[in-house]
Write a protein that binds this DNA or RNA. Sequence first.
DNA 1: GCGAAAGCGGACGAATCAGTCCGCTTCTGC
DNA 2: GCAGAAGCGGACTGATTCGTCCGCTTTCGC
Lengths: 180, 180
Amino acid sequence: MTVLRADAQRNLDRILEAAAEAFAELGPDCAIDEIARRAGVGHGTVFRRFPTKEALRAAVIRLHLHELLARAREFAAYEDAGRGFEDFVWYAAEVCRRDRALFEGVEKCTFDDVAAAKQELHDVVNKLIRRARRDGAIRRELDAQDVGALVGAAIEATMHAERPDAWRRYVRVLLDGLRP
Amino acid sequence: MTVLRADAQRNLDRILEAAAEAFAELGPDCAIDEIARRAGVGHGTVFRRFPTKEALRAAVIRLHLHELLARAREFAAYEDAGRGFEDFVWYAAEVCRRDRALFEGVEKCTFDDVAAAKQELHDVVNKLIRRARRDGAIRRELDAQDVGALVGAAIEATMHAERPDAWRRYVRVLLDGLRP
DNA sequence: GCGAAAGCGGACGAATCAGTCCGCTTCTGC
DNA sequence: GCAGAAGCGGACTGATTCGTCCGCTTTCGC
C-alpha cells in the first residue's frame, strides 16, 4: 500500500472517526450517507477507501477488537484469577455499553482477520474463565462458552434498559449468579 | 366491523399465522412479501387487512401478550410468591425462546392498545416481583423492567449456545443471581 | 509554476421494500 | 343461477440505500 496523499489521509481519518461514532450511536446498519455527512465528504469518497459497507464496519471493529484484546491479556495476567475475571467483565460491559455496534457488529462481520482477532480474544477470555473456575469463582457446570454467552447477554440487556445506571446492577446480578 | 366473507376470513387466519411464524423466525423487520408468500396470498391482500406493517405486527403481538398476561395472573395468585415468580420466569423464558420477535416487537410497537396491554402485564409482573421481593426471593434494587431485561437476555444467550439444554442452566444462573 | 497522478463527490443505476390501485375473480343472498 | 358486493393480487409508485462512474479539482515532485 503506497502512501496516501495528504488530503486523502485526512479524509480517511475523518471517515474512520465518523464511522466509529455513527456505528456506536446508530448501530451497525447505519447508512453510509450518514457517515459521509458526519465526515464532511461525499459518499463516493467513503466507497473509494472501503469497497463495501462491510469493509468499513470491519475496519472500525478491528481497531476496537485489538484494544479489547490487549486489555483482556492484562486481566488474564492478574494473580487473583477471580478478580481478573470480574474486572474483565466490568470492562467489557463498559466498552459494549458505550458502543453497541461493537457487539452486534462483531457477530455480523465475516472478514478473515476480524474472525482471527475474535478467535484470539476468545482464547484469552477462555483462559480467564478456566482460571477463575479453578479458583472456585465460577460454578463448575458452566463452561467458557456458557460464561461468554451469559456475559454477552447481560451486556445485551443493558442496551434495552432505560435507566442509565441499570447496567451496573445487571453485571452484578450476573457475577453473583455465576458463583457456585 | 361486519362479518368477513368465508374466503377473506380464511386468508386473514393464514396471514396472522404466517406473520407470527415469520416474525418469530426472522425478527420484527421481516418483509411483508415474505409473510404474504408464506400465507399463500398476494401482498396486496395483507395490506387490505392491515393498513401498515406496524398494524400487522401489533395484531400478532396482541395475541401473544394476552396469553402471557393470563398466565402471569395465574402465577401471581400463587400462595408462595417466590415460587410464583420463578415459575413465571421459566414460563416466560420458554415463550421467548420459541418466539424471539415477541420481546423485540413489543419494544417497537407504539399502538395504544398494545401499550395498554404491555402496561397491564407490567403491573402484574411488578406485583409478582414485589411479592417475591417481600418474601426475600429477589434483591431489593431490581424493578420489573430490570427483571424483564435480564430474563430476555438470558434467553438471548441460549440462542448463541450450542448445547440445546443450555437455556435451563442460564435461567438457573439468572434466578440465583436475582436472589439477595 | 506545471503537468501528471491521485483524489473528490454528485449524478446515476440497481435492488429492496412499504404501501396504492384497479381490473378481474369469487362468494353469497335471493 | 344471477347480480352485485366483497375480495384478490400483481403491476406500479416512491422512498431508501448500497455501490459505480466519470468529469472536475487538488496535490506534489520537479
